[in-house]
Each structure stands twice: as structure tokens, then as C-alpha cells.
């Protein structure tokens, strides 16, 4: 049992060490952005990775179900622009929603603002997850 634990730890440590190179760091951050939790899974943090992989896209789906809107990158409206950045921070789920023509938002729906909040928060949480993966890859955690 102890042997297995040691082997697992050394494997994680080796991955972390190798990920400290700039190219590998970029790969970890890109993976973490593309798919919530993928960065953690890549770094051997399986439990955390699976939780992020399930919870964050689910939150994004709830936002779509609540008829929230995926905002356009409109520089003329700073708050909308920030909301659009938050929406895009979730990566693949955003792209899939766009491809499926979801996230147009229904302004008159009672749940419209709730939907926006879920969509943006899912993206912002993924931004935190990306930073956490970066810290792990740098050996800070």
C-alpha cells in the first residue's frame, strides 16, 4: 500500500517538475481552459479534475436552461465586454453552445438574469481552476 502511494506521489512530482517548463505550462493552461478540470487531470490531480469536469459544465448548462445569454465581444459596452470574457473562459462548452446556436438569451424570461449569472460564474470559476492548475504546474501547491 505504501509502495503504491510512493509511486503515485513520485509520478505526480515528476509530471509537476516537467510541467514547469514554459511549453508544458502553456499546455496545462490551454487544456484547463479548453475543458474544465482537464489541467488537473493532466497533472495527476484526478479527484479535483473530475469534480471540476462535472460541476462547471453543469453550471454552464443550467445557465443555458435558464435562458441566459452568451454576450458578444462588444468593446463599446465595457460591462457587456467583461461579461463576454467571463462567458468565454469556460472553453469548449462555450464553443459547443455557439455551434448549437444556444445561449441567445430570452430577455423577457423571468430567469434571464439568473441564467446570465450562472453562465458568467461558470466561466469565472474555470478561470480560477486554470490559475490553480498553473500553480500546481509551477510546483507552488
Amino acid at each position: 500500500m505504501i509502495g503504491i502511494r510512493v509511486a503515485t506521489k513520485s509520478t505526480t512530482a515528476e509530471r509537476t517538475k516537467s510541467a514547469a517548463e514554459p511549453g508544458a505550462l502553456a499546455v496545462v493552461c490551454l487544456l484547463a481552459w479548453l475543458l474544465p478540470g482537464a489541467g488537473h487531470l493532466w497533472l495527476g490531480r484526478r479527484q479535483k479534475g473530475i469534480i471540476f469536469l462535472l460541476v462547471i459544465p453543469f453550471m454552464f448548462l443550467v445557465g443555458l436552461w435558464l435562458q441566459g445569454r452568451l454576450f458578444p465581444l462588444a468593446m463599446s459596452e465595457p460591462l457587456v465586454f467583461l461579461g463576454a470574457l467571463a462567458d468565454r473562459a469556460i472553453g469548449t462548452p462555450y464553443m459547443l453552445a455557439r455551434m448549437l446556436d444556444a445561449g441567445n438569451g430570452t430577455v423577457i424570461a423571468v430567469t434571464y438574469e439568473y441564467g446570465n449569472t450562472f453562465l458568467m460564474t461558470a466561466g469565472l470559476l474555470n478561470a480560477l481552476v486554470i490559475l490553480d492548475a498553473f500553480d500546481i504546474a509551477m510546483g507552488r501547491k
Binding site: 479535483k48 471540476f52 460541476v55 453543469f58 443550467v62 470559476l125
Partner: peptide, 13 residues
């Protein structure tokens, strides 16, 4: 539901 999902992610982080 919002509180639950945010709590799960924060606690895991």
C-alpha cells in the same frame, strides 16, 4: 443550486 455549485468548486480548490 447556485450556492451549492459555487461551494463545491471553492471547497475543491
Amino acid at each position: 443550486l447556485f450556492a451549492l455549485l459555487v461551494s463545491i468548486v471553492f471547497a475543491t480548490l
